[in-house]
Amino acid sequence: MNFAMKVMAVAIMGFSLNAMAVQKDITINANVDPSLDMTLSDAQPLPTSVTMQYIPGNGLAPYTMQTKIWSNAYKDVNIKLANDVLLYDRAGTSNSVAITVSYGGSALTTTDRLMKASTLFPGGSTAISNGSIEQELKFTQGPLTPPATAIAAGNYTGVVGIVLTQATTSA
């Protein structure tokens, strides 16, 4: 009887192991703006952080990336900075470094700069599904803190806020 009970227990355990399941849950997030977006030129998201290299005697090396603008409508696009860009020392000192942000070779400010749809999408309204022409997004040290200016040692951080809006009229 003992042997029969052992066999039955092993059989029940075998069946219960086969009935086990593993569930893996993955949360998917999406930030959807139905009108505009800016990505890297290969349609990958812009990085959430970048590191500018410091070169003694030369300051912060420029950081560049090739980007595209995507739109659901063939309209002119306004681009601007949300705020002037300053890097602040994380240690809480008063040290800061001014950063210039340029797009397509022109410096951005907190005032809208109009980009014509005909320039962004030279193929016309049918070209919007391919994104805009590639343009360089560039971060450089200056102008309030020119590259030759010595920067105090520290770990600096700041946020670049780029605001895109569609113009209210068609191109």
Results as ranks from 00 to 15, higher is better:
Thr100Asp: 08
Val10Asn: 06
Leu81Gln: 06
Gly131Pro: 05
Asp76His: 02
Ser118Met: 14
Leu40Asp: 01
Gln53His: 08
Ala98Ile: 00
Tyr156Gly: 09
Arg113Glu: 08
Ser170Trp: 02
Tyr156Arg: 00
Lys24Ser: 14
Tyr156Thr: 09
Asn155Val: 11
Leu114Asp: 04
Val85Phe: 00
Ala167Arg: 05
Ser170Tyr: 07
Asn58Lys: 14
Asn72His: 09
Met1Ile: 07
Asp37Met: 02
Gly105Cys: 11
Thr111Ala: 07
Arg113Ile: 14
Leu137Tyr: 04
Asn95Gly: 01
Pro143Asn: 01
Leu81Thr: 08
Asn31Gln: 06
Ser132Asn: 03
Gly161Cys: 03
Met52Thr: 12
Ile151Gln: 08
Pro56Asn: 08
Pro34Tyr: 10
Ile55Trp: 06
Leu36Ile: 04
Ser118Trp: 10
Pro47Asn: 05
Val22His: 04
Gln135Thr: 05
Ala117Gly: 07
Thr93Glu: 12
Gly92Cys: 10
Gly131Ile: 12
Asp25Cys: 00
Phe15Pro: 02
Thr93Lys: 12
Met65Thr: 15
Gln53Trp: 04
Ser106Asp: 14
Asn2Ile: 00
Asn130Ile: 05
Ala150Val: 12
Thr165Ala: 15
Pro143Thr: 01
Thr51Pro: 04
Thr64Lys: 15
Ala43Asp: 15
Lys138Asn: 01
Phe139Ile: 01
Thr109Ala: 13
Trp70Lys: 09
Ser16Pro: 03
Pro56Phe: 09
Gly14Trp: 03
Gly59Pro: 13
Gln166Gly: 07
Val97Asn: 04
Ile26Asn: 07
Gly154Leu: 02
Gly59Thr: 11
Phe15Glu: 13
Asn18Phe: 13
Thr149Tyr: 14
Thr119Glu: 15
Gln135Cys: 01
Asn29Gly: 03
Ala30Glu: 07
Val85Ile: 05
Ser35Glu: 13
Asp84Glu: 15
Ile162Met: 07
Ala107Met: 11
Asp89Pro: 03
Thr126Lys: 13
Asn78Thr: 12
Ile99Thr: 07
Ser35Cys: 06
Pro147His: 04
Ile133Trp: 03
Arg90Phe: 11
Thr157His: 13
Thr51Ile: 03
Thr149Asp: 15
Thr145Asp: 05
Met1His: 06
Leu137Ser: 06
Asn58Ser: 14
Val163Gly: 02
Ala117Val: 04
Arg90Asn: 15
Thr119Asp: 14
Ala11Lys: 02
Gly131Cys: 05
Asn29Met: 04
Ser125Pro: 08
Met38His: 01
Met52His: 12
Ala167Asn: 10
Leu86Trp: 15
Thr100Gly: 12
Leu108Cys: 10
Pro146Val: 02
Gln53Phe: 07
Gly104His: 02
Thr67Gln: 10
Leu144Met: 00
Ile151Leu: 10
Gly154Val: 01
Val7Tyr: 00
Ala73Tyr: 12
Ala152Val: 13
Ala171Pro: 14
Val97Glu: 02
Asn2Ser: 01
Ser96Val: 06
Thr111Gln: 05
Pro34Met: 08
Tyr88His: 11
Ala11Asn: 01
Gln141Phe: 00
Ser41Cys: 10
Ser129Leu: 09
Ala127Glu: 13
Asp33Pro: 00
Leu164Ile: 00
Asp37Lys: 00
Ile99Asn: 10
Gly14Ser: 08
Pro122Cys: 10
Phe121Thr: 04
Gly57Val: 10
Gly142Ile: 02
Ala167Cys: 05
Met20Thr: 04
Gly123Asp: 09
Ala153Lys: 14
Val77Ala: 03
Met115Cys: 10
Val85Glu: 01
